[in-house]
Structures are given as C-alpha cells and as structure tokens.
C-alpha cells in the first residue's frame, strides 16, 4: 500500500525557475489494484509517480509504503519510464535483464531462473537472449527494458506512458502483459496513459491530474461521467463510450462491454 499525505513537489526550489509540479496530493494506492493516471501534458503525472518510489523526495508532506516513510529509492516498486528502451546498455539481452537482480545481490542458477521466468512473462524469445539488444525492433527493445525491471520482482510497477510510440499490435500485446502481471502474478500496477481506451480496459480506479492537483479520483464510471470537464481539460472518454452514449447507454466504456450490451439489445 502506498500512501501520499499532502505531498508537494517543487522543481528548482529557491531559484527564479521554481516550478510547483505536484501540489498537496492525498492518495492511497491499494494492494493488487490497477490505478490509472490521466491528465494533460505537464499536469504532474510523471513527477507524482516518481515521488511514489523515492526517486524524488517531497518538498512538503510525506510518502509511506507499507507504513514506512520513503527515504531512498525502493526496489520493491519498479519504475518503467517513458521510452524505457533508452536505458538499455548491456551487450546481450540476457545481461540487460539480469542487471537489476544482479545489483540486488542475486547470482548463479537463481539468477538464470529469474531471467528465464521474466523473459517468458514478457514473451521474449529464447533465441535472442544472446543477441545485442541495440539492433532489435522498437517493440522488442521496450519489452526487454520492461523485463529488466520485472526481473527484480517488484510488488508494484509504475508504467509511465508505456505504449507511447508503439504500433497497434505491440500496444495490445503490452497491455495484455500488464493485465496478466496484475491478475496472475498479483502485481499492483500504476499506469500513466494518454489513451482512454487503454485506461478503460485495464484500470480499477482512475486518478485525474490537473495543474499538479487531484481533479478526480474514482472508478472508471465515476471519472468518465464527468465528460464535459474532461473535455475542457484536453482529455476525453473512450470513443466506444461516446458511441454508446449516443445510443443511450451511459455506463459502457470498453468494446467488450459494448458488445454485450448490443447483443442483449439485438435479442
């Protein structure tokens, strides 16, 4: 469980470039949930998630994980940055994935097993494990970079816009993997995204950020029912939901839900 109490973060404090990116946020992330974070560019999403695992220390307020105050970077909360493939540096895919757990002091067979298991979850084919990651496709590089974080077996993973710049197939594949992680491996997921479809498909709860503050937090239905306000913030609701609204269905957010409703109606 991650608790934020009245957390504020100011970049370049005490200089003329001072910028309050997160302002007085109260939030609790429950174990096992998928929390979506949406908001306009610059609304403080990336800053907020970096506060959660200790990469940034709040200027005011405090962050607690499992009741303990966060004072340094926490290995039990993994962080997948935007464009994580930019952090790849090892000569082989295997070494890249093993880097995190090796830093935690793991070695020998245990490490090998850990890497193999992670590669399987991330659908990384065994034949590329000995290849250089630098010459693979963008989608594969991203899966390898994510595997590098997953290999540390964090109980919570933060994804900051994980599907940005991927093709539709790689996007769907990644979202499916995130769902599997949550449902089968019990990982708590925090997902920052600009795609309302992705958010509606995956999340239990949604947090809407606006100018560093929490504008809304609640279930998918609760948050997406403020359509006008979301539009005014430069956000949106899923396209399928817009269609369903025009047809008179008001709590239908994903293609699956819509299909059910329409089938029912057709009978």
């Amino acid at each position: 469980m991650i608790e934020l109490k009245n957390v504020t973060y100011t970049y370049s404090k005490d200089t003329p470039f001072e910028k309050e990116a997160v302002a007085g946020v109260d939030l609790v992330v429950e174990k096992g949930e998928i929390l979506g974070i949406i908001g306009h560019t610059g609304s403080g999403k990336s800053t907020l998630v970096q506060l959660m695992n200790g990469l940034l220390t709040p200027t005011k307020g405090e962050v607690r994980v499992e009741g303990n105050k966060v004072e340094r970077v926490l290995p039990q909360i993994g962080m997948v940055f935007q464009y994580p493939e930019n952090q790849i540096f090892e000569e082989t895919v295997y070494k890249e994935i093993a880097f995190g757990p090796a830093n935690m002091g793991m070695g020998g067979e245990e490490l090998e097993r850990r890497v193999a298991k992670t590669a399987e979850i991330m659908d990384i084919p065994a034949e590329i494990m000995k290849k250089s990651p630098h010459f693979l496709s963008g989608g594969q590089k991203r899966r390898i970079a994510i595997a590098g974080i997953l290999a540390m077996e964090p109980g919570t993973i933060i994804f900051d816009e994980p599907t940005a710049g991927l093709d539709p197939r790689a996007k769907n594949h990644l979202i499916d993997t995130i769902l599997t992680l949550n449902r089968e491996h019990g990982v708590t997921v925090i997902l920052v995204s600009h795609s309302m479809e992705e958010i509606a498909r995956t999340c239990n709860r949604i947090l809407v950020m606006r100018d560093g503050k929490v504008a809304h937090i609640g279930t998918v239905t609760e948050v997406f029912s403020h359509e006008d306000e979301l539009l005014e913030m430069g956000l949106d609701i899923p396209e399928i939901a817009q269609l369903m609204r025009r047809l008179g269905y008001h709590d239908c957010w994903t293609v699956e839900q819509a299909t059910e409703k329409l089938k029912e109606a057709a009978c």
Partner: peptide, 30 residues
C-alpha cells in the same frame, strides 16, 4: 537515465572510486 538506473539498483553515492566509475557505464552508454 540516472533515475532509471538507480531504480534498477545502482548506487551512485557510495563505494570506492572504481565502483563509482563502474556505476557510470550504464549511464554513459545509453
């Protein structure tokens, strides 16, 4: 990149000179 690698367990602050220089490799290459 420094943030991303420190989230993967690199420690830039402690250790001897050699260890600190080694810690720079995962930052410099990317």
């Amino acid at each position: 990149i420094i943030k991303a690698q420190s989230a993967r367990g690199i420690d830039f602050q402690s250790g001897g000179l050699i260890k600190r220089i080694k810690a720079l490799v995962p930052v410099l290459i990317p």
